[in-house]
């Protein structure tokens, strides 16, 4: 890891000002930035510490919904009763992420901004298309953990657990940059490789996520996040799904189904939502919605198993969300 200037601002505004100089990076929990720096994938000339910045560690109910400061750790998120009660999919997603040791440091902002885990991207010897080369090595190479949707250009999967869960709760990502504050609906937060190969998120240079606001459950509603891992103690998700629904009588309405770990960015599956809206969310309806969620998959040589696994994962997320809605 190359040496850098260590910058410790006191406010988000000062942090943004410090990061306006080219070559500087924000440091939240460091669980992704430091490995990237150790492997030479990022070589910032200055590192701007985010810990302790005003307002970035709050977690509260506001007029915008539940506002989660970007420096809140995953450990804090998955032990918070307000989050458990009002954003169960977010609670589940944080609890599934990494290990307790990582969750003690990893932050909400960092979870959204983390770079792909694709082994070709992470390996210093592969100049893959995401690093400015002209080849996605996963297309012909080892692609067991890669994308099964939108995978013609670059086969990464977005590793964020919180991304699909935030989307299921109609989140807005609040960012601060040199030109002031922007509020980005989470649906517009993701950047596909075809749009810009160098990034996965819609942040301009020097912009900082300060918080995420989520719509809490209301009425008879429930949400859930399910993930399947190769190793259950901890691992990156093979497939993931966040689901939210409201019960109108015994029928599902206002359904959200968002899948993760299967495409370069999280994907909302509106066709699956349409299948479930207006139906009793029982096992048959959940399977039907899951069938719609996997439609159009284009698995690679080694990852067809993900299609079957995703189908079950979507079904389970829907049934858990529905069970929670019935109990609410």
């Amino acid at each position: 890891m190359k040496n850098f200037d260590w910058i410790t601002p006191a406010t988000p505004e000062a942090a943004v000002q410090a990061a306006a100089q080219a070559g500087r990076a924000f440091l939240g929990g460091g669980t992704d930035l430091l490995p990237l720096m150790k492997s030479g994938l990022r070589e910032p000339t200055g590192v701007v510490q985010l810990k302790g910045l005003t307002g970035m560690e709050r977690l509260e109910l506001t007029a915008d919904g539940i506002t989660i400061g970007a420096s809140i750790t995953l450990a804090a998120l998955c032990t918070d009763t307000l989050v458990q009660r009002s954003l169960p999919a977010v609670f589940d997603a944080a609890r599934h992420a990494a290990t307790p040791l990582v969750r003690n440091r990893a932050t909400v902002g960092g979870n959204l901004c983390q770079r792909p885990r694709c082994w070709y991207f992470r390996h210093p010897d592969y100049a893959c298309s995401k690093k400015g080369g002209d080849t996605c090595y996963a297309i012909e190479g080892e692609n067991k953990f890669h994308a099964i949707f939108d995978n013609t250009t670059c086969n990464i999967v977005h590793p964020s657990n919180l991304g699909p869960a935030f989307w299921a709760h109609d989140a807005v990502v609040v960012v601060l940059g040199p030109k002031g504050e922007r509020r980005i609906p989470v649906a517009e937060f993701w950047v596909r490789p075809e749009e810009d190969m160098r990034t996965e998120v819609a942040l301009e240079p020097g912009e900082l996520i300060t918080s995420v606001s989520c719509k809490p459950l209301s009425g008879r509603s429930g949400s859930a996040f399910e993930e399947v891992n190769e190793k259950q103690s901890y691992d990156w998700g093979l497939v993931a799904c966040a689901a939210r629904l409201t019960l109108d009588g015994d029928k599902a309405s206002d359904v959200r189904i968002v899948i993760g770990a299967v495409a370069p960015v999280p994907l909302r599956r509106e066709a699956a939502e349409a299948v479930l809206n207006g139906k009793v969310p029982n096992e048959a309806a959940a399977w039907a919605a899951a069938d719609a969620a996997i439609a159009g998959a284009t698995p690679l040589r080694d990852n067809a198993y993900k299609v079957t696994m995703l189908r079950a994962c979507v079904k389970n997320a829907i049934l858990t969300a529905a069970a929670r809605a019935r109990k609410s």
Binding site: W6, G29, G30, T31, P35, V47, L101, R105
Partner: peptide, 8 residues
């Protein structure tokens, strides 16, 4: 508990 390799 934290991972000392990922803390500056």
């Amino acid at each position: 508990p934290v991972l000392a390799c990922l803390v500056l």
